[in-house]
Design a protein around this nucleic acid. Structure first.
Length: 468
RNA sequence: GGAGCCAUCGCCAAGUUGGUAAGGCCGUAGAUUGCAAAUCUGCUAUUCACCAGUUCGAGUCUGGUUGGCUCCUCCA
């Protein structure tokens, strides 16, 4: 397995810190609003990594946090009058449901900030004791970036004062680069947690460090690294991951993660999709229009490090490619899967082992589909091939997360029983007309079906239909 | 102002150590079909934003130009 490490900016041979085991930690969402396509892509990218490593035989543990205490959540509490728990529970449930719809494997460990306060305050106390953090007059705690000689090594950000000109200066900070580990309560209605330094709440960066320390460092880490792979969106590289890495390094004396991976953005009209820009395409809205499996295929069809420009036309192309896989599956159904073709399986694994080269993997699948259809055209009763093909598709489903549906059901998404009956009645009528060589009638029935959004195809086994 | 990424066929998009351009969509010619649809086959970039350099040889390396995006502030 080769992985592109965004710190070293090069592709590296992946060697886990513990033999046969891989620990991955991905920064999860702040749960104050619905997930957009960008969140989906990030989840999908690391899901691909997770599945690939598993297919390669590793024992993989994936962690993904929920930031459920944050300024924006508190703001929402004030706006809506709902409790913080009501808001965060709602969005966490929604997030999980939507990611399920995309076929994202759930994280093995999904810690929440509010459940990790002890680990967070412990880490802050240790940093204060080491004189690497300081408490301000108002009770805020800041990390002293000057205490870490390696600060900046993750994002390779230069630390001259000029580059910091856009950072608003908080008076209590000794240095503008310093960042908050703990924010003391200001008004009475703030959500506060007790600590030895002040009543307050954790800063964003410390959460991930503390959660990794609590859930991974001692069980999955070594004396050199806490985890194997740390992932997240490219926008998290600085300052979030820089700060995380710095805190953890100062606390534990070793590096936080051996490899760092960052996914590219989903863009709309060439611009990054983000809540602050107001151009978000929410996952729930996308899922209203498209099946999760199609969205998954589409969002994963471009290499994870590249930016992804969302367009409906491209999504339709993805649907066409997925359709072809399901048509083939329909063709080999019913049968029992045997073993996947060795070469096919290996070619896909090879592609995915090269920093998740999904384009090659999809091309291998397209070629398998075409050659199998060709063979089946020439020899429709090749049972061995059918069994192998089904196994091939099952392998694809396990590794890439699509192709797992019952093929007839796939083409009938959104068709209720009543409509189904009408379609089948019409098809029977058309079959009769065809038998009588009344092509005028049979064609007009076909036109009627087409106007209903149903496309039909005559085959040796009778007439099949699909919802377009 | 500082830092970085990217630029490949009409569209989307692959191209580790430089060795002579995957795949999909669209289009097109055909096979098949009562006609379609579905399926298959052939064709579809002497060329990789532009300029210069290194090299026997560069999409791949170096320098520059132009254009796009991102980070430096919450962000997947």
């Amino acid at each position: 397995m080769y992985i592109y490490d965004s710190v070293q900016k090069t592709k590296l041979l992946f060697e886990p810190i513990r033999d046969g085991e891989v620990s991955i930690y991905v920064c999860g969402p702040t749960v104050y609003d619905d997930a957009h396509l960008g969140h989906a892509r990030s989840s999908l990218s690391f899901d691909l990594l997770y599945r690939t490593l598993k297919a390669l035989g590793y024992s993989v543990t994936m962690g993904k946090n929920f930031t459920d205490i944050d300024d924006k959540i508190i703001q929402k509490v004030k706006e809506t009058g709902q409790s913080m728990a009501e808001i965060t529970e709602f969005y966490i449930d929604r997030y999980l449901e939507e990611m399920d719809a995309l076929g994202v494997t759930r994280a093995d460990i999904a810690p929440r900030a509010t459940e990790s306060i002890g680990a967070i305050t412990d880490m802050i106390e240790r940093l204060i004791a080491k004189d690497m953090a300081y408490v301000s007059s108002t009770g805020d705690v800041y990390f002293d970036t000057s205490a870490d000689e390696h600060y900046g090594s993750i994002s390779s950000m230069v630390s001259d004062d000029e580059s910091q000109s856009r950072v608003s200066h908080t008076t209590d900070k000794r240095d503008p680069k310093d960042f908050a580990l703990w924010k003391a309560c200001v008004d009475g209605d703030d959500i506060c947690f007790d600590s030895s330094f002040s009543s307050g709440r954790p800063g964003w960066h410390i959460e991930c460090s503390a959660m990794i320390d609590k859930h991974f460092a001692h069980t999955h880490g070594t004396d050199k690294y806490s985890i194997d792979i740390h992932g997240g969106g490219a926008d998290l590289l600085f300052p979030h991951h820089e700060n995380e890495a710095s805190q953890s390094r100062c606390d534990s004396g070793h590096d936080l993660s051996k490899y760092w991976m960052h996914n590219g953005f989903v863009q709309i009209n060439g611009e990054k999709m983000s809540k602050s820009l107001g151009n978000s395409f929410f996952l729930k809205d996308a899922l209203d229009i498209y099946d999760g499996e199609i969205l998954r295929y589409y969002l994963n069809s471009v290499h994870y490090r590249n930016n992804f420009n969302f367009s409906q036309e491209d999504l339709e192309v993805s649907k066409k490619r997925l359709d072809k896989i399901y048509r083939l599956k329909k063709r080999v159904t019913p049968t029992k899967a045997s073993m996947p073709n060795k070469k096919f399986k290996q070619n896909i694994l090879d592609a995915m082992s090269d920093d998740l080269n999904i384009s090659i993997a999809l091309a291998v699948i397209d070629e398998m589909v075409a050659s199998t259809n060709d063979s089946l055209d020439n020899n429709p009763k090749d049972k061995g091939l059918k069994k192998e093909t089904l196994a091939n598709i099952e392998f694809v489903d396990t590794l890439l997360g699509f192709g797992g549906k019952e093929p007839f059901a796939y083409f009938q998404i959104g068709v209720d029983e009543e409509l189904k009956l009408r379609i089948e009645t019409l098809i029977d009528k058309r079959t009769e007309a065809k038998k009588d060589k009344d092509f005028g009638l049979s064609d007009s029935i076909r036109d009627e079906l087409v106007s209903m959004g149903i496309s039909i195809m005559d085959s040796a086994d009778g007439t099949l239909w699909e919802k377009v």
